[in-house]
Design a binder for these strands. Structure first.
Lengths: 170, 170
DNA sequence: CTTTACAGTTCTAAAAACGAACTGTCAATT
DNA sequence: AATTGACAGTTCGTTTTTAGAACTGTAAAG
């Protein structure tokens, strides 16, 4: 699969993965949220090769996730800062961190705590329904096609019409 | 960087990225949440090479995200189903989908709608503070070291002590 | 007895990532 | 005046991953 093809797929998840779905990009974005702004900052924090870093930053700028802002003339220098589109990735980041906090911690506990300025407490992020404010879990959600769903299913492998379950121990 | 090293880092995000932070893995998990369970199902839905699919499934099983359950003897066949650890990835998936719905839709609108069984309505996922239930945004959150923070910063590049800003147009 | 479903494994070619060195501008140091 | 260091990349040869297609093996169906 060509990875830029992901952005054309009629699936918001595939499209998003096309933008942020690789390891370095996610780590670069972590650094952005931790207030890193400059090339050397990213490079030394992550140990990414300079080549790849340059490429990933370019892509994030192209996608509108980061903005490249000059902070000095003479040797032209730029900072990379999150746009609103980039800031909106925050729930994804927090969800990733929280899963790690829940399932990947060692005996010492979590590496990082998060404090909510509004209420002053250390918190966990919780995902709730926008309509009833109840916490969400996979089993309580029903998925159905929306207006942007694929009309011509030509791209997918054609459904084999003769799908007769041989044995169904399942 | 060796990618399995990510799981040792004192950062819940890095550790999580070590498990799910690549394109195919995320797409495989999407399929899992859409109730795909079998090898051929994943393969034909995604167009992933069989080789990589086998490898990724193995890794997800090793990580405890999927469980490999026999559904027939004689050719031994297995299904891959989400464990609780895997189901807990749901907020990450929803956050990714929601970002795509917000920032990557074309004129036709969202490909998929989500209905909450409890309240019956189509919804968006919202991330809130576990303590005060207010929606979260990056700027309202302060991050500080937890018990599992790195005690010996030997792995990171040593902080250059003489960091004297040459020019600060910033 | 040939085909099909299914779950992989094996192989070679192509693409991506790594690692280290190099380019270029300017300020500060010697 | 010459050298060093900060900074933001680019270039290039090597190694690792991924793609793509074919092959293996079991058993039911036609």
């Amino acid at each position: 699969m060509r990875w830029d093809a992901l952005e054309e797929e009629p699936c918001s998840m595939a499209r998003t993965i096309g933008v942020i779905g690789d390891r370095w990009t996610l780590l670069i974005l972590r650094e952005c949220f931790l207030r890193t702004r400059r090339f050397e900052g990213f490079q030394s924090a992550l140990g990414i090769t300079r080549h790849l870093l340059a490429e990933r930053l370019k892509k994030l700028v192209r996608q509108g996730v980061l903005r490249r802002i000059p902070y000095q003339e003479a040797p032209k220098r730029h900072e990379y800062i999150l746009t609103q589109k980039g800031l909106d990735l925050y729930p994804i980041m927090m969800a990733i961190v929280h899963w790690g906090d829940t399932h990947m911690v060692d005996t010492r506990g979590r590496p990082l705590l998060h404090q909510h300025r509004k209420c002053g407490k250390n918190f966990d992020p919780v995902m709730v329904c926008s309509e009833c404010n109840e916490p969400l879990s996979a089993k309580e959600v029903h998925t159905h096609p929306g207006p942007g769903a694929r009309s011509t299913p030509a791209i997918t492998a054609p459904e084999k019409p003769k799908a007769k379950a041989r044995r169904s121990t399942a």
